[in-house]
């Protein structure tokens, strides 16, 4: 079975045939041993060993570890990859820019209000996490379209905080 593994902006083709894998034109005898009760696997490639954390996230999506770094990998077979390439939306129709919480935390200050014109790098929201205040800044100039949170509110990682429109917005 041929798999396409996406890691960040890289795509790697891995052919798996029982206990052989072929990748980048090289073929290896490969095993992925299980440590009972631990989300860690022992990968062997022609006898070379590497232990690495390996957790399923959702169908085809895995979180692995490499030397203490978390890496997420999307694994697709040829058919799924083809279907996905047809259905993926084009990136051109970008909506308004949204400032999202980079971490879970508490909104301690809001420096903007709806309709306000702001410059690139202007402070927008101050988020407190683990006793540190972190000022989130605007990535570019724009107009505040919506403020989606309130001071004192606890927010999750990735939660939308403030929406922006282009400066020339009528």
């Amino acid at each position: 079975m041929k798999y396409f593994v996406t890691i960040g902006d890289r795509e790697v083709e891995v052919e798996v045939d029982r206990e052989r894998v072929t990748v980048a034109g090289r073929s290896f005898a490969a095993t992925l041993g299980v440590l009972p009760g631990a989300p860690v696997r022992l990968l062997t490639l022609d006898g070379a060993t590497a232990a690495l954390p390996c957790e399923p996230l959702s169908a085809g999506r895995w979180r692995l570890g490499w030397h203490g770094e978390q890496v997420e990998a999307d694994v697709m077979d040829e058919r799924t990859r083809h279907i996905r390439s047809l259905t993926v939306r084009s990136g051109a129709a970008a909506g308004p820019a949204t400032l999202r919480a980079p971490m879970p935390g508490l909104v301690v200050r809001l420096a903007v209000e709806v309709g306000q014109q702001i410059g690139a790098g202007a402070g927008v929201v101050v988020l407190e996490a683990m006793k540190m205040e972190n000022e989130l800044k605007a990535s570019g100039p724009g107009v505040v379209r919506a403020v989606l949170v309130q001071t004192g509110q606890a927010v999750e990682k990735g939660q939308a905080l403030v929406e922006f429109g282009p400066s020339a917005d009528p």
């Binding site: 079975m1 798999y3 593994v5 890691i7 890289r10 790697v12 891995v14 798996v16 894998v21 990748v23 980048a24 290896f28 490969a30 095993t31 992925l32 696997r41 990968l43 490639l45 590497a50 690495l52 390996c54 399923p56 085809g60 895995w62 692995l64 490499w66 030397h67 770094e69 890496v71 990998a73 694994v75």
Partner: peptide, 18 residues
């Protein structure tokens, strides 16, 4: 090396799951 190892491990894990 990191990318290839992680890719191989992910492909093997996915293959096993299927």
């Amino acid at each position: 090396a990191a990318v290839l190892h992680v890719a191989i491990a992910a492909a093997l894990a996915e293959d096993e799951r299927r």
